[in-house]
Simulated scan of single mutants.
Amino acid sequence: MMAIAARKRVASTVWMVAPLLILMIVGFNLPILMMLGKSLFRGENLSFEAYSNLIETSVYLKVLGNTFKIAVITTVCCVLLGYPLAYWLRGLSLKWQMIGLAAIVIPFWISILVRTYAWIVILGNSGVINRTLIKLGWIDTPISFLYNQLGVVIGTINVLLPFLVLPLFASMMKIDDGLMKAAETLGAGRMTVFWRIFFPLSLPALAAGAVLVFILTLGFYITPAILGGGRVPMIANMLDLLINQMPNWEMASSISVVLLVFSMALFVFYLRFTAEEKAI
């Protein structure tokens, strides 16, 4: 009787999970398999022509290299800005922590498209920054912030910085202050305590956040398209061109597979750092 009851429970569980499983297969796994098939097959024949064309065509390699370059710059800037911000928030009182976190979270409620266009108002040749600098007499002609790599990086940092700050701040709050106080009682200075105790404990969360920002930057589309003005090609923009205008599904699929493999490799590192953080 117990075996029959156990089988019934398993069967009921399977029926409850089945709709979600079907949705995952049809909505996520099947398109990925179709993309892989497009990159590997020409008709019914196995072919690596799309991958060889990707390697031999300098334009595709240039776009891939530019994308990784912007992702690295964005990630480094987010780390340099996000770590001090999270550390500063940790030292505030509970009231000011809530205010600071609200200031970081509220932009999530605003569309990325709206926030991106707002940067045009701020960074344009007649924007707030250039007009202010000209009035102060610091510059004679407007600085070109937009439609170049600088504008893309600024807009991307604005969107992705919270993805590093919020989990990093949550991890910092878990660090026991007693460890720092114990080190200080043994004669360690504040800088020594920070670099020898606090920073190593927060490093797994920092690394995980950096990997997450890097992965998200690789697939960014809206911000580079608007702030780059078509002059800063990235992978997502190139895929849009290959699919909607050319179209060249084989090449688009091969580029997507390369991006997917690289992102999965980074995600493995992300899971590793997350696991280390939980162990701490």
Rank of each mutant, 00 (worst) to 15 (best):
L179E: 06
V232C: 09
K135D: 12
I22N: 01
A86Y: 06
S93D: 14
L133H: 03
T67R: 01
L227V: 04
F269E: 05
I32F: 15
A225S: 14
I222E: 11
T274F: 01
I106Y: 13
L218F: 09
A18R: 00
V63L: 00
M1R: 13
V63Y: 04
I99N: 02
M234E: 09
Y83A: 13
F198S: 11
L164A: 07
F163N: 06
G27C: 11
I112Y: 12
K181E: 15
E250Y: 06
S111W: 13
R42G: 08
V79A: 14
L241H: 07
L161M: 04
P200R: 08
F199E: 02
I22D: 02
I175Y: 11
F108L: 05
P247T: 00
M238H: 08
F28K: 01
F267P: 02
L259H: 06
S263D: 09
G27D: 07
L206M: 15
L136V: 06
W88A: 15
T57R: 13
R190P: 09
N53T: 10
V193I: 09
D176E: 13
V152A: 09
V17I: 15
T67F: 00
G127V: 05
K174H: 09
Y270C: 02
G100P: 09
A183R: 08
N130D: 02
E49T: 13
F262P: 00
F169K: 02
W138A: 05
A208C: 07
L239H: 08
G228Q: 06
W138N: 01
V193F: 03
P167I: 00
F220N: 11
F108I: 01
M16S: 09
M180T: 10
T116C: 10
M98H: 10
L203R: 14
L179M: 12
V211S: 06
I197P: 06
L21S: 13
G187K: 10
T141C: 00
V72S: 12
S126A: 12
N158R: 07
Y117D: 05
L201T: 05
A3R: 14
T274Y: 03
F214D: 02
N237V: 07
N244M: 07
N244Y: 00
G124L: 03
V10S: 06
L123W: 00
R196Q: 13
S202A: 15
G189R: 09
R272F: 14
I122K: 03
V213I: 13
G137M: 05
R115T: 05
V261P: 01
M173D: 04
R131W: 00
R196N: 12
G187A: 08
L218D: 07
